[in-house]
């Protein structure tokens, strides 16, 4: 292990994967497959953006894959997910089809929102994914509301409410925290701390950079988690989900993660050194870690890994093909879905 990674590991306040967690072949392969799908999907989306097939804002999730995949593995059927605009990974992890997500990115009728929502605004009620929201922090109140509905209906489900380090400084977050703890709502607030609020580092944008403590004045417990290790995410996620599901109320997970790309496709990311990104890529890449463990544990051979890689590429290429050839929405769709 490189020295830098070792030094980071000594920070005792951050939850790592424990020895008690013995992931076997099945979990490691599931995590690998899911994370790789997000990685390859996002790379392809970046390409299509470059080709002008995707317009507007497009926020890629590359580097943060372990967070959403680990959390999803801790859920059960019926649990909901809501997030902001860096949402493609969340949708894929929720089981939404790559074709439908990519076609929404290109604004075609086969997209999850019929091409009307785009990258930032996509939903699948069938897969319990509640968006896809463009206004920073706005989804936090909505996720709290979903958790309220779970409690009201007593359905035993929890709602994962994702937001970033930047959004955690928005006012409605704290109004939501208060209600969530007051009414013991089954909601897990996942703060994806990728170190930058758009182009502003957390040190420059946040008075309290320990985001796990952001619920302290409401008595909401929190935990800092190594968000680059899918096993650590899963373990902490399972604890938090159990807390919320058993009626103990909300839980905050600060996922320490990193995005390799800019805030959006139009961000050249000049506010950080290239070396910083390179270091994360080479020393902390969440997918490489799993791949290494799979090979070291001899769960499958290198050839079989290559086969998985090829399968993923196939899914992603097909989605790009579909999203490129599918038709734009019918002009009459302009006036539908405004009211019911």
């Amino acid at each position: 292990m490189p020295a830098a990674a070792k030094a980071e590991k000594t920070d005792k306040s951050v939850s790592r994967a424990t020895k008690a967690l013995a992931w076997g072949k099945e979990q490691e392969l599931t995590a690998y497959r899911e994370m790789l799908l997000i990685r390859r999907f996002e790379e392809k989306a970046g390409q299509l953006y470059g080709m002008g097939l995707i317009g507007g804002f497009c926020h890629l999730y590359i580097g943060q894959e372990a967070v959403v995949v680990g959390m999803q593995m801790a859920l059960k059927e019926g649990d909901q997910v809501i997030t902001a605009y860096r949402d493609h990974g969340h949708m894929l992890a929720c089981g939404m089809e790559a074709n439908g997500v990519m076609a929404e990115l290109t604004g075609r009728r086969g997209g999850y929102s019929k091409g009307k929502g785009g990258s930032m605004h996509m939903f699948s009620i069938e897969k319990n994914f509640f968006g896809g929201h463009g206004i920073v922090g706005a989804q936090v109140s909505l996720g709290t509301g979903i958790a309220f509905a779970n409690r009201y209906r007593d359905n035993g489900n929890v709602c994962l409410t994702y937001f970033g380090d930047g959004a955690s400084n928005q006012g409605q977050v704290y109004e939501s925290f208060n209600m969530a703890e007051l009414w013991k709502l089954p909601v897990i607030y996942i703060i994806e701390n990728n170190k930058y609020a758009m182009g502003t580092s957390v040190e420059r944008s946040s008075a309290l950079t320990d985001f796990s403590k952001r619920g302290a004045s409401f008595n909401i417990p929190g935990e800092k988690v190594d968000g680059m290790d899918v096993r650590a995410v899963y373990e902490a996620g399972a604890r938090a989900v159990n807390h919320a599901r058993t009626g103990e109320g909300p839980f905050i997970l600060e996922m320490q993660t990193y995005r390799y790309r800019g805030h959006s496709m139009s961000d050249p990311a000049k506010y950080r050194a290239k070396e910083e990104v390179e270091k994360m890529r080479t020393e902390r890449d969440p997918i490489e870690w799993v791949r290494k463990r799979i090979l070291e544990g001899k769960f499958v051979s290198e050839d079989e890994i290559k086969k998985i890689d090829a399968e993923i590429r196939q899914i992603v290429n097909e989605s790009a093909e579909f999203a490129t050839n599918d038709q734009e929405p019918d002009p009459s769709e302009l006036y539908t879905d405004v009211l019911r």
Binding site: G56, G117, G118, S119, M120, G134
Partner: peptide
């Protein structure tokens, strides 16, 4: 702006 959809 351009292609930034409903909320923007």
């Amino acid at each position: 702006a351009a292609r930034v959809a409903a909320q923007h």
